[in-house]
Design a binder for these strands. Structure first.
Lengths: 187, 187, 187, 187
DNA sequence: GATGAATGAGTTTTCATTCAT
DNA sequence: TATGAATGAAAACTCATTCAT
């Protein structure tokens, strides 16, 4: 059994279950079936542990979201695929979503990655520039486009996880994609 | 001098400056120019204090966002006004935004208002039902519409406060509104 | 309304209800319908207040216990009367009993009256010396006699107040008196 | 070195020296040569710690007081032995006595053992029922008998520890036992 | 590598007392 | 006299981190 992975998984589970506020080393150890001291064999401390988990998730996300992406495909198709990938990633691993959200909104909690907060959005930027060149995506600032993609996705996942909507319902995702696309597409 | 308000303002300032994680009663007291014990004259404890602040901000937001709303106005106009009000509220009081975000993403931190997390969205729901009736807003589930309104707004404010975009730039807001409207409007 | 008396009564009630451990000035004030600061107009502080109450009760007890005492009466009669007075005093004012007990067993709590712990027993000493002279009470050390009088009385009251016995039952007191007398009487 | 025992011993010493009122965790730790936090490894908190100590002492007492007790012995002999055991227990470990007294008279301080207050008297009850059957002990309610045994014992120990009497003096105990026996014995 | 008892600085909270009104 | 808001020292308790085994 890989203790390092077990520890990271514990953090993920606990942050999701009880929030950053109640996260403590003893519980992490207990959840991972490991002694408290063992954590310090793999991580410098609490901060390091959390930052490591964050990096891990961001990497996984970026890999996942780009699956099926091909420059040759129409932008719209790539857009749909990416949204789909992103949503799938979080719906199948909801703990990741909760963790990322909490991490992002904890200013100065763990300074190291301060500038990486939007790192996980990099694939989206790529697609936007192509779309603009081809004239299928509105010629408005990237940051505004970003808000029109990332924002709805973020909220719809949140609503789904809070059982306020059901993205698995027949046609639900399609409606969402179409509407989201309208926001950024040239008419 | 109202000590209760001073304490609430301190929390807001400190949460924004250093995050929930580093918030402690001694600093709150110092920031409010008050003795530590004084906080307990007005609040039962840390949780109560934070919940009180949350309620206060949500109330202020709801009042602010509905300014200028009139049933007689076209839905689109009300939509623009509301988005505008919301953005203005947070841009002029950015600490409020940061606080609400952190509060929302801290599961089980302070259970009391668990169901109020989306309370501050109530004005939006009102507008959506009217728009659907009139046929100007897409006939898709409210939760999806919500994600298309709340999501972009949320992200654009975040980007603005992080200096990744500038909503005060000439024409910026208008572009944003138009695009956001496209997402929810019937073509 | 005499605020000083109200304060003393509050202490008595609260010590009885919740114990010394939970006694605090704010509750005393509330119970007495008085502001916290008012207590300090009548007493130097918490210690002084409690010591004053102790002295008050001891005085009342001493007065009460000697009612009907007359040097001319037979020692046995005076003994019965005193036991009877003592028991009546505490049964009609059980708060007094609880207070005295707690005060007595709180070493160094309030140093002032340290040596007065057995002060309230002075009437008993008087009777013992007379009884010995007359040859009706055993010629054993006063301290042992004291234990044989004070001890049973103390315990029987405690048991009565804890509903483990009922001194108001017909004949109960008489049985108790007779047995207690046997312990100290010359056969 | 057993830290748990060291902590319990510290509480005993400090309660005896300064009373419940002044008992605090920092001093307990210091007295036990242990860090403050260590106490919480073995006890949930102050209440738990004190309740644990109470249980420990009551158990020790009950074991000690029954030493030499045999159903075959005459009741009077068992009575003398038990009184002797009890007195010896408390005279050799006076801190135990003070602690038990304070614990008993602190209503609602620590609720858990509320009904065990008289638990430590259980051996006495046993003896009384036998004595009554044999006709050597007065046929009066157990509760009254109890007061005539427990009461004097309690008070004489208190007086001894307060240096108001000296049970180690030649013949002192015997006088006390004889008198105490007279109270409960059939003439 | 692995443990988990122990630490003690730091945190929340309480409360006797003061003092401006 | 009387008030009760305010104080701040002291209390109970937490928890990241260390280290002997």
């Amino acid at each position: 059994m890989d203790k390092k992975q077990a520890i990271l998984k514990s953090v993920l589970k606990l942050v999701n279950r009880e929030g950053f506020y109640h996260l403590n080393m003893k519980n992490i150890a207990k959840e991972a079936n490991v002694a408290a001291g063992t954590i310090y064999l793999y991580f410098k401390g609490k901060e390091d542990l959390i930052n490591a988990l964050y990096s891990m998730i961001v990497n996984e996300f970026n890999q996942h979201v780009l699956q099926g992406y091909e420059d040759e495909k129409p932008v719209k198709e790539n857009f749909y695929d990416m949204l789909n990938n992103a949503i799938e990633f979080y719906l199948t691993q909801p703990d990741n979503f909760s963790f990322i959200e909490q991490y992002t909104y904890a200013p100065f909690l763990f300074k190291e990655n301060q500038n990486d907060n939007f790192l996980l959005l990099s694939p989206i930027y790529k697609m936007m520039s192509v779309g603009k060149k081809e004239g299928v995506i509105r010629n408005i600032p990237d940051s505004i486009l970003l808000s029109l993609i990332h924002g709805p996705m973020n909220t719809i996942i949140k609503l789904h996880l809070a059982h306020k909507t059901d993205l698995n319902k027949r046609g639900a995702k399609q409606k969402f994609f179409d509407a989201a696309w309208s926001a950024i597409a040239v008419v």
